[in-house]
Design a protein around this nucleic acid. Sequence first.
DNA 1: AGGTATCCCGAAGAATTTTTCTGTACAGGA
DNA 2: TCCTGTACAGAAAAATTCTTCGGGATACCT
Lengths: 117, 117
Amino acid sequence: MYERKIPVDLTCPLRLTMSLIDSKWKSCILDELRGRAMRPSELHKALPEAAPRVLDIQLKELVDDGLVSKTVYPELPPRSEYAITPLGMTLIPIIDSMLEWGEKNKELFVRKYGEMK
Amino acid sequence: MYERKIPVDLTCPLRLTMSLIDSKWKSCILDELRGRAMRPSELHKALPEAAPRVLDIQLKELVDDGLVSKTVYPELPPRSEYAITPLGMTLIPIIDSMLEWGEKNKELFVRKYGEMK
DNA sequence: AGGTATCCCGAAGAATTTTTCTGTACAGGA
DNA sequence: TCCTGTACAGAAAAATTCTTCGGGATACCT
């Protein structure tokens, strides 16, 4: 795993919160898991633009940070499920306000940056 | 300036909003400017841990995105001021909820990651 | 002229994150 | 047996962001 060489000042509440969710797919993962627990393969299907390996890594970080929980069912074929934790749920209002902001202002930026498709 | 090779799907409202504020110092800059306009040198003093060049670049991007405005006073010595725009102000509730979240949960992560000084 | 201060910007390299490729392991089905 | 699906992880490459270094412009002051 990668070891940071330049520490971040997590004393700043803003940077602390940011550090937990500003990776490329973390906010999307939390948004997907808000309604129900999902299996890894489901998440991969739900976020097809994300490289599977990246999803796995960011999922693991979310688990390490206590925002998501992982349950492994000792079955065959193997099955596991990721669910948002109560702590993770407390971030949902932030996700929601970002969703709402993006919805309300998207025309502004689609015009500026193009469809980006 | 750097040209992206992998486009981001800004059709997703969450990723759109994120893309505007998830650079290292953008949220901090908006937080600093929320109260009053500031000169670049003031911002550098307010955020001493940020490399000045990075602040300049991110400030410029915020201006390009319409979240911050720049006013240059044709004086000598030169003076300019950055202020948050009405559009930028609509992001403040999001910043606030992140500040609040970080404040409320910081002990959890300080314990986990250390003081990070 | 040499020093200050202000603001801005280019370029190279380091740091970090993301992407891609590859490999492990298990068991069911053709 | 070979191929499939599921889940996970190492390692190298590529992409992106951040850091550092240094320069340019202007006009003031000594």
